[in-house]
Amino acid sequence: MSAVSVNKLTKLYHTKKERVKAVEEVSFEVSKGELFGIIGPDGAGKTSLFRMLTTLLLPDGGSATVDGSDIVKDVKAIRKKVGYMPGRFSLYQDLTVQENLDFFATIFNTTVIENYDLIKDIYVQIEPFKTRRAGKLSGGMKQKLALCCALIHRPVVLFLDEPTTGVDAVSRKEFWDMLKRLKDQAITILVSTPYMDEAALCDRVALMQTGRILSTGTPTSIISSFASNLFTVKAEKMYPLLCDLEAWDGARDSYSFGEFHHVILNAQYDVGQLRTYLDSKAHSNVEIHTTQPNIEDCFMQLMQN
Protein backbone atom coordinates (compact mmCIF):
# COMPACT_ATOMS: atom_id res chain seq x y z
CA MET A 1 0.00 0.00 0.00
CA SER A 2 1.25 3.47 -0.85
CA ALA A 3 1.59 6.01 1.91
CA VAL A 4 -0.10 8.56 -0.32
CA SER A 5 -2.06 7.74 -3.43
CA VAL A 6 -3.45 10.54 -5.54
CA ASN A 7 -5.75 9.88 -8.46
CA LYS A 8 -6.82 12.63 -10.87
CA LEU A 9 -7.27 15.06 -8.02
CA THR A 10 -8.76 18.38 -9.12
CA LYS A 11 -9.45 21.63 -7.31
CA LEU A 12 -11.23 24.58 -8.86
CA TYR A 13 -11.56 27.97 -7.42
CA HIS A 14 -13.90 30.62 -8.58
CA THR A 15 -13.01 34.17 -9.27
CA LYS A 16 -15.53 36.76 -10.39
CA LYS A 17 -15.14 36.00 -14.04
CA GLU A 18 -13.84 32.51 -14.41
CA ARG A 19 -13.14 29.17 -12.84
CA VAL A 20 -9.46 28.55 -12.38
CA LYS A 21 -8.08 25.08 -12.05
CA ALA A 22 -5.72 25.31 -9.11
CA VAL A 23 -5.02 21.60 -9.34
CA GLU A 24 -5.88 19.70 -12.48
CA GLU A 25 -6.15 15.90 -12.59
CA VAL A 26 -3.04 15.34 -10.57
CA SER A 27 -2.01 11.72 -9.98
CA PHE A 28 0.99 10.26 -8.18
CA GLU A 29 1.94 7.65 -5.61
CA VAL A 30 4.26 8.06 -2.66
CA SER A 31 5.73 4.94 -1.07
CA LYS A 32 6.10 4.48 2.64
CA GLY A 33 9.16 6.15 4.07
CA GLU A 34 9.80 8.15 0.93
CA LEU A 35 10.91 11.78 0.84
CA PHE A 36 8.76 13.11 -1.96
CA GLY A 37 9.17 16.60 -3.38
CA ILE A 38 6.57 18.69 -5.17
CA ILE A 39 8.65 21.17 -7.11
CA GLY A 40 7.05 24.19 -8.71
CA PRO A 41 6.80 27.97 -8.68
CA ASP A 42 4.14 30.00 -6.84
CA GLY A 43 0.73 29.36 -8.32
CA ALA A 44 1.61 25.82 -9.38
CA GLY A 45 -1.07 24.45 -7.03
CA LYS A 46 1.22 22.98 -4.39
CA THR A 47 -0.59 24.50 -1.44
CA SER A 48 -4.06 23.55 -2.74
CA LEU A 49 -2.82 20.01 -3.26
CA PHE A 50 -1.46 19.79 0.28
CA ARG A 51 -4.62 21.27 1.73
CA MET A 52 -6.72 18.65 -0.04
CA LEU A 53 -4.49 15.85 1.21
CA THR A 54 -4.70 17.17 4.79
CA THR A 55 -8.54 17.44 4.54
CA LEU A 56 -8.52 21.22 4.71
CA LEU A 57 -10.05 21.53 1.26
CA LEU A 58 -12.56 19.32 -0.51
CA PRO A 59 -11.48 18.24 -3.97
CA ASP A 60 -13.72 19.03 -6.94
CA GLY A 61 -12.76 15.83 -8.66
CA GLY A 62 -10.64 12.72 -8.34
CA SER A 63 -9.69 10.92 -5.18
CA ALA A 64 -6.79 10.38 -2.85
CA THR A 65 -5.85 8.32 0.15
CA VAL A 66 -3.34 9.05 2.87
CA ASP A 67 -2.09 5.97 4.70
CA GLY A 68 -5.10 4.12 3.32
CA SER A 69 -7.67 6.66 4.53
CA ASP A 70 -9.83 8.49 2.04
CA ILE A 71 -9.34 12.27 2.19
CA VAL A 72 -13.07 12.95 1.88
CA LYS A 73 -14.63 10.15 3.91
CA ASP A 74 -12.08 9.40 6.60
CA VAL A 75 -11.40 12.96 7.71
CA LYS A 76 -11.07 12.07 11.38
CA ALA A 77 -8.70 9.21 10.74
CA ILE A 78 -6.47 11.40 8.60
CA ARG A 79 -6.43 14.25 11.07
CA LYS A 80 -5.03 11.86 13.66
CA LYS A 81 -2.15 10.61 11.60
CA VAL A 82 -0.84 13.43 9.47
CA GLY A 83 1.51 16.18 10.45
CA TYR A 84 1.18 19.47 8.61
CA MET A 85 3.39 22.52 8.49
CA PRO A 86 1.73 25.30 6.48
CA GLY A 87 3.70 27.71 4.34
CA ARG A 88 3.48 30.59 6.74
CA PHE A 89 4.91 30.36 10.24
CA SER A 90 1.84 29.10 12.06
CA LEU A 91 2.61 28.87 15.72
CA TYR A 92 1.44 31.04 18.57
CA GLN A 93 3.89 33.91 18.60
CA ASP A 94 2.94 34.98 22.13
CA LEU A 95 3.53 31.54 23.58
CA THR A 96 6.99 30.33 24.52
CA VAL A 97 8.75 27.51 22.70
CA GLN A 98 7.92 25.12 25.52
CA GLU A 99 4.28 26.22 25.72
CA ASN A 100 3.78 25.82 21.99
CA LEU A 101 5.20 22.34 22.04
CA ASP A 102 3.17 21.27 25.08
CA PHE A 103 0.04 22.74 23.59
CA PHE A 104 0.38 20.93 20.29
CA ALA A 105 1.20 17.69 22.07
CA THR A 106 -2.01 17.92 24.13
CA ILE A 107 -4.13 18.84 21.15
CA PHE A 108 -2.92 15.67 19.46
CA ASN A 109 -3.61 13.66 22.61
CA THR A 110 -0.01 12.92 23.38
CA THR A 111 2.83 14.28 25.46
CA VAL A 112 6.22 15.65 24.60
CA ILE A 113 7.93 12.90 26.61
CA GLU A 114 6.15 10.13 24.74
CA ASN A 115 7.62 11.11 21.38
CA TYR A 116 10.69 12.93 22.52
CA ASP A 117 13.02 10.54 20.70
CA LEU A 118 11.53 11.65 17.40
CA ILE A 119 12.12 15.35 17.87
CA LYS A 120 15.19 15.13 20.07
CA ASP A 121 17.72 15.95 17.35
CA ILE A 122 15.84 19.07 16.34
CA TYR A 123 14.65 20.08 19.76
CA VAL A 124 18.08 20.20 21.37
CA GLN A 125 18.92 23.02 18.97
CA ILE A 126 16.07 25.20 20.22
CA GLU A 127 16.08 23.99 23.81
CA PRO A 128 18.34 26.82 25.02
CA PHE A 129 15.53 29.20 24.04
CA LYS A 130 12.62 27.23 25.42
CA THR A 131 11.34 30.06 27.60
CA ARG A 132 11.50 32.54 24.77
CA ARG A 133 8.31 33.56 22.98
CA ALA A 134 8.03 31.98 19.55
CA GLY A 135 7.60 35.40 17.95
CA LYS A 136 11.05 36.41 19.15
CA LEU A 137 12.86 33.48 17.56
CA SER A 138 14.99 33.81 14.45
CA GLY A 139 13.67 32.49 11.15
CA GLY A 140 15.64 29.28 11.30
CA MET A 141 14.64 28.64 14.90
CA LYS A 142 10.97 29.22 14.18
CA GLN A 143 11.17 26.69 11.44
CA LYS A 144 12.71 24.11 13.72
CA LEU A 145 10.05 24.70 16.32
CA ALA A 146 7.32 24.40 13.70
CA LEU A 147 8.80 21.12 12.57
CA CYS A 148 8.89 19.84 16.15
CA CYS A 149 5.24 20.79 16.61
CA ALA A 150 4.28 19.04 13.39
CA LEU A 151 6.13 15.91 14.48
CA ILE A 152 5.09 15.79 18.11
CA HIS A 153 2.30 13.25 17.59
CA ARG A 154 4.51 10.95 15.51
CA PRO A 155 2.56 11.38 12.26
CA VAL A 156 2.59 8.64 9.67
CA VAL A 157 2.77 11.15 6.86
CA LEU A 158 4.29 14.61 7.18
CA PHE A 159 3.27 17.44 4.86
CA LEU A 160 5.65 20.39 4.66
CA ASP A 161 4.40 23.26 2.54
CA GLU A 162 7.31 25.37 1.30
CA PRO A 163 9.32 25.07 4.51
CA THR A 164 12.38 26.74 2.98
CA THR A 165 10.80 29.74 1.27
CA GLY A 166 12.28 33.02 2.40
CA VAL A 167 14.90 31.23 4.45
CA ASP A 168 18.57 31.86 3.76
CA ALA A 169 20.86 29.29 2.23
CA VAL A 170 22.39 28.18 5.52
CA SER A 171 19.07 27.49 7.22
CA ARG A 172 17.82 25.77 4.09
CA LYS A 173 20.70 23.39 4.14
CA GLU A 174 20.19 22.61 7.83
CA PHE A 175 16.54 21.97 7.25
CA TRP A 176 17.18 19.43 4.53
CA ASP A 177 19.68 17.67 6.75
CA MET A 178 16.95 17.35 9.38
CA LEU A 179 14.55 15.88 6.83
CA LYS A 180 17.12 13.31 5.82
CA ARG A 181 17.43 12.18 9.42
CA LEU A 182 13.66 12.00 9.81
CA LYS A 183 13.51 9.69 6.84
CA ASP A 184 15.44 7.16 8.89
CA GLN A 185 12.52 7.17 11.35
CA ALA A 186 10.30 5.73 8.59
CA ILE A 187 8.12 8.81 8.32
CA THR A 188 6.80 9.50 4.86
CA ILE A 189 7.49 13.12 3.99
CA LEU A 190 5.89 15.23 1.29
CA VAL A 191 7.61 18.54 0.86
CA SER A 192 6.86 21.34 -1.58
CA THR A 193 9.37 23.92 -2.72
CA PRO A 194 9.86 26.53 -5.41
CA TYR A 195 13.65 25.97 -5.33
CA MET A 196 14.57 23.69 -8.22
CA ASP A 197 17.93 22.78 -6.73
CA GLU A 198 16.20 21.16 -3.75
CA ALA A 199 14.75 18.50 -6.04
CA ALA A 200 18.07 16.66 -5.98
CA LEU A 201 17.64 16.17 -2.22
CA CYS A 202 14.38 14.18 -2.60
CA ASP A 203 13.95 10.47 -3.30
CA ARG A 204 11.37 11.24 -5.93
CA VAL A 205 9.83 14.44 -7.17
CA ALA A 206 6.82 15.69 -9.08
CA LEU A 207 7.41 18.81 -11.12
CA MET A 208 4.33 21.00 -11.03
CA GLN A 209 3.29 24.03 -13.03
CA THR A 210 -0.09 25.79 -13.26
CA GLY A 211 -1.99 22.99 -11.57
CA ARG A 212 -0.55 20.16 -13.61
CA ILE A 213 2.19 17.67 -12.99
CA LEU A 214 4.81 17.93 -15.72
CA SER A 215 6.78 14.89 -14.72
CA THR A 216 7.22 12.46 -11.84
CA GLY A 217 10.20 10.31 -11.00
CA THR A 218 13.54 10.16 -9.26
CA PRO A 219 15.67 13.23 -9.94
CA THR A 220 18.07 11.05 -11.96
CA SER A 221 15.35 9.49 -14.07
CA ILE A 222 13.87 12.89 -14.87
CA ILE A 223 17.27 14.18 -15.88
CA SER A 224 18.11 11.15 -17.99
CA SER A 225 14.86 11.51 -19.92
CA PHE A 226 16.06 14.94 -20.95
CA ALA A 227 17.05 14.17 -24.50
CA SER A 228 18.98 17.16 -25.72
CA ASN A 229 22.50 18.15 -26.37
CA LEU A 230 23.14 20.75 -23.76
CA PHE A 231 26.18 23.01 -23.68
CA THR A 232 27.39 25.70 -21.39
CA VAL A 233 28.74 28.82 -23.01
CA LYS A 234 30.62 31.71 -21.59
CA ALA A 235 32.20 34.83 -23.06
CA GLU A 236 33.50 38.20 -21.99
CA LYS A 237 30.21 40.00 -22.56
CA MET A 238 27.45 37.78 -21.25
CA TYR A 239 24.32 39.71 -22.21
CA PRO A 240 25.24 40.30 -25.87
CA LEU A 241 26.22 36.63 -25.95
CA LEU A 242 22.74 35.68 -24.82
CA CYS A 243 21.14 37.95 -27.40
CA ASP A 244 23.24 36.39 -30.15
CA LEU A 245 22.42 32.87 -28.98
CA GLU A 246 18.72 33.65 -28.95
CA ALA A 247 18.95 34.96 -32.50
CA TRP A 248 20.71 31.85 -33.80
CA ASP A 249 18.83 29.12 -35.73
CA GLY A 250 21.08 26.43 -34.34
CA ALA A 251 19.95 26.97 -30.76
CA ARG A 252 16.64 25.37 -29.85
CA ASP A 253 16.79 27.17 -26.57
CA SER A 254 19.25 29.31 -24.71
CA TYR A 255 19.09 30.90 -21.30
CA SER A 256 21.37 32.14 -18.58
CA PHE A 257 22.37 29.65 -15.96
CA GLY A 258 24.68 30.71 -13.18
CA GLU A 259 27.93 31.99 -14.55
CA PHE A 260 27.27 30.34 -17.94
CA HIS A 261 24.51 30.35 -20.51
CA HIS A 262 22.89 27.05 -21.34
CA VAL A 263 22.35 26.28 -25.00
CA ILE A 264 20.37 23.37 -26.36
CA LEU A 265 21.35 22.71 -29.95
CA ASN A 266 18.93 21.67 -32.64
CA ALA A 267 19.45 18.10 -33.91
CA GLN A 268 21.34 18.96 -37.09
CA TYR A 269 23.79 21.32 -35.40
CA ASP A 270 26.97 20.53 -33.50
CA VAL A 271 29.33 22.29 -31.15
CA GLY A 272 31.69 23.25 -33.99
CA GLN A 273 28.99 25.27 -35.68
CA LEU A 274 28.23 26.96 -32.36
CA ARG A 275 31.86 27.99 -32.01
CA THR A 276 32.03 29.27 -35.59
CA TYR A 277 28.86 31.27 -35.08
CA LEU A 278 30.10 32.88 -31.89
CA ASP A 279 33.45 33.72 -33.47
CA SER A 280 31.60 35.36 -36.35
CA LYS A 281 29.88 37.56 -33.76
CA ALA A 282 33.32 38.59 -32.47
CA HIS A 283 32.88 37.31 -28.91
CA SER A 284 36.08 37.09 -26.95
CA ASN A 285 37.19 34.48 -24.40
CA VAL A 286 34.50 32.04 -25.55
CA GLU A 287 34.29 28.88 -23.47
CA ILE A 288 32.05 25.98 -24.49
CA HIS A 289 31.57 22.81 -22.44
CA THR A 290 29.21 19.87 -22.62
CA THR A 291 27.27 19.48 -19.41
CA GLN A 292 24.74 17.33 -17.60
CA PRO A 293 21.34 19.00 -17.35
CA ASN A 294 19.82 19.45 -13.93
CA ILE A 295 16.21 19.62 -12.73
CA GLU A 296 15.92 23.28 -13.61
CA ASP A 297 16.86 22.59 -17.25
CA CYS A 298 14.29 19.80 -17.32
CA PHE A 299 11.63 21.97 -15.74
CA MET A 300 12.10 24.68 -18.32
CA GLN A 301 11.94 22.25 -21.19
CA LEU A 302 8.84 20.58 -19.77
CA MET A 303 7.23 23.98 -19.22
CA GLN A 304 7.72 24.96 -22.82
CA ASN A 305 6.42 21.70 -24.28
Binding site: L56, R79, Y84, F89, S90, C149, A150
Partner: peptide
Protein backbone atom coordinates in the same frame (compact mmCIF):
# COMPACT_ATOMS: atom_id res chain seq x y z
CA UNK B 1 -5.03 34.98 9.80
CA UNK B 2 -1.90 33.60 11.39
CA UNK B 3 -2.58 30.17 9.94
CA UNK B 4 -2.76 28.39 13.29
CA UNK B 5 -6.40 27.55 12.59
CA UNK B 6 -5.17 25.44 9.69
CA UNK B 7 -3.15 23.32 12.06
CA UNK B 8 -6.01 23.14 14.57
CA UNK B 9 -8.34 21.88 11.86
CA UNK B 10 -5.87 19.24 10.77
CA UNK B 11 -5.52 18.11 14.39
CA UNK B 12 -7.98 15.72 16.07
CA UNK B 13 -9.47 18.40 18.37
Amino acid sequence: ETGTMEIMLVSPI
